Computed example of a mutant assay.
Amino acid sequence: MKELLRSNDMAQLSFIEVLLRDSGIECVVFDGHTSILEGSLGVLPRRVMVLDEDWDAARRVLRDAGQDVP
């Protein structure tokens, strides 16, 4: 799996998950439990991960939706 992006913004993460899934791209958000342990302060970013073979397509979907992609 490859990291697509990191974010502390829960609304953005939810939006990205929906965008990717609607495009047929499976994604997983890592570090959600770690962020809960730090008290939900939003200090630790969550990582959106996709399969290696979906990485280019996922970046394209996010760019087309106006999301900043590193």
Rank of each mutant, 00 (worst) to 15 (best):
G32T: 10
D9F: 04
E3A: 15
V18A: 07
D52Y: 01
S35F: 02
G42D: 00
D64C: 05
A11N: 09
L37E: 02
S7Y: 06
S40Y: 12
V61T: 04
I36G: 03
D9C: 12
H33M: 06
L51G: 06
S35W: 08
W55Y: 14
I16L: 13
M1P: 12
A65G: 07
A58F: 03
V29I: 15
H33S: 08
L5S: 09
G42V: 07
G24V: 11
G32Y: 11
E53I: 02
D56V: 02
Q12I: 07
I16N: 06
T34C: 01
L13E: 12
V50L: 11
P45S: 15
I16H: 04
S35P: 00
M10V: 12
G32E: 14
R60W: 02
L19P: 00
R63A: 14
E53N: 05
R60D: 14
M10W: 09
R46C: 14
V28T: 10
I25V: 14
E17A: 13
F30C: 07
V61I: 14
R60I: 06
R6W: 00
A58Q: 02
R47K: 15
G39R: 05
V29S: 02
D56G: 00
Q67R: 13
L62E: 12
L5C: 13
D22E: 15
M49E: 05
D22F: 03
G39A: 07
E26N: 10
K2E: 14
L13M: 13
L62K: 06
V48L: 09
L62Y: 09
L19W: 04
L19K: 06
R6L: 08
R46W: 05
M1G: 14
V69P: 01
V61G: 06
L5H: 08
V43G: 08
L44P: 02
A58E: 01
E53Q: 06
R63W: 07
V69M: 05
A11P: 00
L51M: 08
Q67S: 05
C27A: 13
V29K: 11
D22N: 15
M49D: 03
P70Y: 12
L37W: 09
H33L: 10
R6C: 10
D54L: 01
S40W: 10
D64K: 04
A58S: 07
I25T: 03
R47T: 11
V43A: 04
D56L: 07
S7M: 09
P45V: 03
S23C: 03
T34W: 05
G39K: 01
V69D: 04
G39F: 01
A11Q: 08
R47V: 08
I16E: 12
D9K: 07
A58K: 02
P70I: 12
C27V: 07
G24M: 11
C27H: 04
S14M: 15
E3P: 08
V61C: 04
E26K: 06
M1C: 10
L4W: 13
V43R: 12
E26W: 03
V48G: 04
W55N: 06
V48I: 15
G39Q: 03
S35Q: 15
D52M: 01
